[in-house]
Design a protein around this nucleic acid. Sequence first.
RNA 1: GGAGACGUACCCAAGUGGUUGAAGGGGUCGGUCUUGAAAACCGAUAGGGGCGAGUAACCCGCCAGAGUUCAAAUCUCUGCGUCUCCGCCA
Length: 426
Amino acid sequence: MIDINLIRENPEKIKKLLAKKMWEADFKELLEWDTKRKELLIQVESNKAEQNRLSKSVPLVKKSGGNVDEIFAKVKELGEKNKHSETLLIELEKKINDFLIALPNIPDEDLLGGGKENNKAIVTFGKKPDFKFTPKDHVALAESLGLIDFERGAKIAGRGSWIYTGKGAQLEWALINFFIAEHLKDGYEFILPPHLLNEESGYVAGQFPKFKEDVFWLEGIEPQRFLLPTAETALVNFHRNEILANEELPKKYFAYTPCYRREAGSYRTEERGTIRGYQFNKVEMVQYTAQEGSDAAFLEMVAKAEKLVQKLGLHYQVSKLAAGDISHSMARTYDIEVWIPSIGIYKEVSSVSNARDYQARRGMVRYRDKESGKTKFVHTLNGSGLATSRIFPALLEQHQQADGSVLIPECLQPFMGGLKVLKPIK
RNA sequence: GGAGACGUACCCAAGUGGUUGAAGGGGUCGGUCUUGAAAACCGAUAGGGGCGAGUAACCCGCCAGAGUUCAAAUCUCUGCGUCUCCGCCA
């Protein structure tokens, strides 16, 4: 949620920044509501003060044997007079809140406007592999190596599902274990959250109201629950309605969960295999920082995600996303995109974002500032570290050999019983 | 799934309709004292709003929401949560 004060102060500036996200904002009505709200509030409050003052005198008047009927009548009258204004006030506040909660986060000022076409690669690591043979694509490799069973996946679950089998399951789990080990080394706390979350968690994370259709909702359970689309949703709600101490910041967490997404719409042919599905595995990092600490935390998290891809020996690039391509709740996002030879494009394996105080405002996550002694909203950041479903194909394709085998990166070998090569089974 | 009890501030806790616009204790922080510490004593310890700045008076705030009443922590209803017992279950 955007701070309404920013809009009060400089609506034109906010409007321009939101336009970079291709979001057309009109604050005229909002500001009218806001002014009206203030007037009503002052009126209602002074009425209440009068009511309170009179009520307070009742026991005293009674004690001294005076007549209280007059006071009763007066207070009742004031109360009735106030009721109407109070109802109006509540309605206005709801309107204001509904308006604010639907607004996307304000993008950082240095970002280019517009969509994907304005994303900029700012880092490139490694090179596109130069194959001296005809390389296979990841689907063919996964099948010939016996790593993933797409047919049986479709049989038992339907389109968009797959099964990791044998060495494939081991490789998948090795990736997750490798990520976990790295995050622990970096001092992040390991969290295993529930996968079924209540509606409020979706609101706080900023996924709702906009993306309510994009998650899976469960029937037959109260309160209504949805399957988390990313562990971020759970992690940024961890400290909801809490006031943290300045000293405990930054808080660094990571979680492993599957991610469940409806992915409504069509699958492009380039998104075969595990590139896009209803369920994929991801290790997610989240930080809660003081306001002045979030820029450094952002760079730290980008570097962490990069380091993981580097250790896997994969060619990738880092893209600084244009304002219109970053998600609703975020102010800034860098994507780490790994090269997938068969498709000829770089695919996102990690998205690192700074939400600044957008999520914290929704979830009332604050900290006490040491200097001023006042409460401030924390900044929340999240980044994949990493999602496996695109690392897996990139790894198969980039590390494939002429004989159809695939070399396992050194960092994963300890998690696979020392296995160095995956060999075709057919 | 059935039955019951409970929810007060950082923690414990008093409070069954009116000087409670929340007692008391513990903890924590600050101060006095001390060479230093402990003890003792004094003070602070609730956020939010009006108001993105101070002060004073003000409004909201006892899990959340609604209601009864001149007046609600206190009475009623609904929701959420915690605990205990029974049943079922991996």
